[in-house]
């Protein structure tokens, strides 16, 4: 019972904080993109346009909820809800400080991979249920991409698991706090593993250069073509939450999570998460989009073999290097 209350309270707080962060994260991204593109970004709503996301949400919620006549209504309605649910669900096991964690699962990493991997289901549900050709192609691409990039993602995440000898996310962070961040040592395993994780995370959360399921210049809006109003808002939000939580997981697994000098752990965790989050948008507003077959080539010919090598390397490291594994 105590655990339930703890989970409910922390889960509720973390979910609310995440969603608020998203609102200002979108404002930040738009300002950031604006500066990159020699324009100002939002300036009208609130000071410095800070309330732009609030205005956007209010506008989106007022929109008419259009459902295509031949759509599969139950699936069509369920998909955005599931998308929001799954993307928020991953946050449950992310430790924001030694104490702020909704549920400190012993198999936290497994949970992250499982729930994160479920994200493809609402995307495909939306693509299928919309009864729209663009949405269908988008859903088809989403499945190919998510299933493929799940492999390097798992391989990259296995590296910190092997190095620290635990599946618990807070255990991995504690290990890094006691020894060293996996990004910094062993650097020849940690850096490529982090790079693979980051690319797979970009692909899983549909960000440029891997945003082919929604590729708006080709597929209008991909799986969300037929969605309007509140349902579209949920999809949109789920994508941002996925990116933010993915950044948080990356910070926890590779960058030592809450570990850092001079400041409380929470500050460090938030800082690292936001830096990774910003880099996502830096990449997004600089690069063009890959084609889906090139995406597959990158995944299966490069990321997956390198990932396998890294897992073997990590295993060899803990086995043969003295002091490699305590």
């Amino acid at each position: 019972m105590n655990g339930l209350v703890h989970g409910a309270v922390y889960g509720g707080v973390i979910a609310s904080v995440l969603l608020t962060t998203i609102a200002f994260g979108i404002w930040f991204e738009r300002k950031f993109a604006g500066r990159m593109q020699s324009r100002l970004g939002p300036t009208i709503v609130g000071p410095f346009g800070l309330l732009q996301s609030v205005a956007d949400v209010v506008k989106l919620l007022q929109k008419e909820d259009i459902v295509p006549r031949d759509a599969d209504r139950p699936l069509f309605d369920l998909a955005p809800v599931l998308a929001a649910l799954f993307s928020l669900g991953v946050a449950a096991v992310v430790p924001f400080s030694p104490t702020i964690i909704a549920s400190d699962l012993d198999v936290g990493v497994l949970y992250i991979l499982a729930v994160g991997g479920l994200m493809v289901i609402p995307t495909f549900m939306a693509g299928w249920a919309s009864n729209n050709k663009f949405a269908l192609i988008g859903g088809m691409r989403a499945i190919a991409q998510s299933v493929s990039y799940g492999v390097p993602l798992v391989l990259a995440v296995l590296v910190p698991v092997i190095l620290s000898g635990t599946l618990s996310v807070s255990g991995i962070v504690t290990y890094q706090a006691n020894h060293h961040w996996f990004l910094t040592w062993p650097v020849f395993i940690g850096v490529p593993a982090f790079a693979i994780y980051y690319m797979a995370m970009l692909a899983e959360s549909n960000r440029i250069p891997f945003d082919i399921p929604e590729a708006e210049s080709e597929l209008v809006a991909g799986v969300t073509t037929e969605y309007t109003g509140a349902k579209f808002t949920l999809f949109y939000m789920a994508e941002y939450v996925h990116t933010l939580v993915g950044s948080a997981v990356g910070a926890a697994l590779f960058l030592g999570g809450w570990d850092g000098p001079f400041a409380p752990g929470l500050h460090w965790m938030v800082l690292k998460t936001l830096v990774l989050f910003t880099v996502v948008y830096w990449v997004r507003w600089s690069l063009l989009r890959l084609r889906s077959d090139q995406l597959m080539v990158l995944c299966w010919k490069w990321l997956t073999p390198i990932g396998v090598l890294l897992v073997l390397g990590a295993a060899a490291w803990v086995q043969f290097v003295p002091g490699g594994f305590q």
Partner: peptide, 18 residues
Amino acid sequence: FTLDLGGALGGGSTLFLH
């Protein structure tokens, strides 16, 4: 052209506006 390659919500629009 870069909009076509990179999307209105991505690197394509950066070059587009420049």
